Computed example of a mutant assay.
Amino acid sequence: MMRHLHSIMRITWMDKVTNKKILERRGLPSMEDLLIRKNLRWTGHLMRMSPDRLPKQILYSQLSSGHRKNGRPRLLFNDTIRRNLKLRDITTDSWTSLTQQRYKWRALVK
């Protein structure tokens, strides 16, 4: 994608323009922003599901047995949600009630 934007905007590698600057000039979101948006949209969909659905059960479940490998623990989905909510300036204590109002949640995520 970036190669095509470079050619459309007639920017060569010698111009030393970063990808971030090119995306800002075109008014396009970064890849990180797109991933955060997709993650929060899926989270809203997940929170509106009925409790008997498997994806929601998996979100709230915990392993009863097993062990982890040495080193830093892997990032959990809930940790990712909290991090993305913080990046979007959404309060972490009331976000579950916001997801029930689909149109407001979508506007907030965008």
Rank of each mutant, 00 (worst) to 15 (best):
F77L: 15
R68T: 14
S97Q: 12
D52W: 06
I81C: 07
L108D: 02
S65T: 04
I90L: 00
L63M: 11
N19H: 15
P73D: 10
R74M: 12
I11G: 00
T92A: 15
M14D: 10
L75E: 07
T80Q: 08
S65H: 04
R82M: 07
L35V: 09
T92C: 08
K110C: 11
H67R: 15
R83G: 11
L28Y: 11
K56D: 11
L5I: 03
K86W: 06
D15T: 04
T91M: 08
I22N: 01
L54S: 04
R41D: 01
R82V: 05
M2Q: 05
D89L: 08
G27N: 12
S65M: 05
D52I: 13
S50A: 09
G44L: 05
M9F: 04
I11H: 01
R41C: 01
L59Q: 08
W105K: 04
D89G: 06
L40T: 03
T43L: 02
I11A: 02
Y103H: 06
M14I: 03
L85M: 02
D33N: 15
Y60E: 09
S65I: 09
D89I: 00
K86P: 00
N78E: 09
K38R: 12
D33C: 12
Q62C: 12
S61E: 12
K20R: 02
L34H: 07
H4W: 07
K86H: 03
K21H: 08
V17F: 10
H45V: 03
S50T: 14
K21A: 12
N19F: 10
D93P: 00
L98I: 06
M47N: 03
Q62V: 09
G66H: 07
K20H: 08
W42G: 07
L46Q: 11
K86Q: 12
T91R: 10
L87S: 12
R72E: 13
G71H: 07
L34G: 00
R83H: 10
E24W: 07
M47E: 08
R26Y: 07
T12I: 02
R88A: 13
N84S: 00
V109E: 03
D79L: 01
I58E: 04
K56I: 10
T18H: 00
E32L: 04
D33H: 13
M47V: 12
R37A: 15
R88M: 14
T99V: 08
I58V: 07
W13R: 04
K16M: 09
F77E: 13
H45M: 06
R26F: 03
T96D: 03
R74Y: 04
T80F: 05
T43K: 05
I8V: 10
V17R: 15
I58C: 01
G27D: 02
R48V: 15
T96A: 07
L87Q: 13
N39A: 05
H6E: 11
P51S: 13
N70S: 05
P73W: 04
I81E: 02
G27Q: 10
K20C: 14
K56V: 00
L34V: 09
T92Q: 06
K20A: 14
R88D: 00
I22M: 02
V17T: 08
L54I: 15
N70Y: 06
